[in-house]
Simulated scan of single mutants.
Amino acid sequence: MRRELRIARCGLACCLCSENIKCSGCNSGECPDKEWCENRKCSIKKDITACYLCKEECHKGLLNKIKPYGFTLFIKRYGIEELLDCLDRNEKNGVVYHREGINGDYDDFDNVEELISFIKSGIQ
Rank of each mutant, 00 (worst) to 15 (best):
R2I: 11
R3E: 14
L5C: 06
R9I: 15
C10P: 11
A13F: 06
S18P: 06
E19G: 01
C26L: 10
C26H: 08
N27L: 12
G29V: 01
G29C: 08
C31D: 01
D33H: 13
E35K: 11
E35N: 12
E35L: 05
C37L: 05
E38L: 10
K41N: 13
C42D: 06
I44R: 08
I48Y: 03
T49C: 02
A50I: 01
C58E: 11
G61D: 05
N64K: 07
I66R: 05
P68L: 09
P68T: 10
Y69I: 04
G70E: 09
F71N: 15
L73M: 09
F74A: 03
I75S: 05
K76S: 13
R77A: 07
R77H: 06
G79A: 04
E82N: 05
L83I: 01
L83R: 04
C86V: 12
L87T: 15
D88M: 05
D88H: 03
R89P: 06
R89V: 06
R89K: 15
K92T: 03
V95N: 08
I102N: 12
N103T: 09
D105K: 07
D110R: 05
V112Q: 13
V112F: 08
E114F: 08
L115P: 11
S117D: 11
I119C: 02
G122V: 06
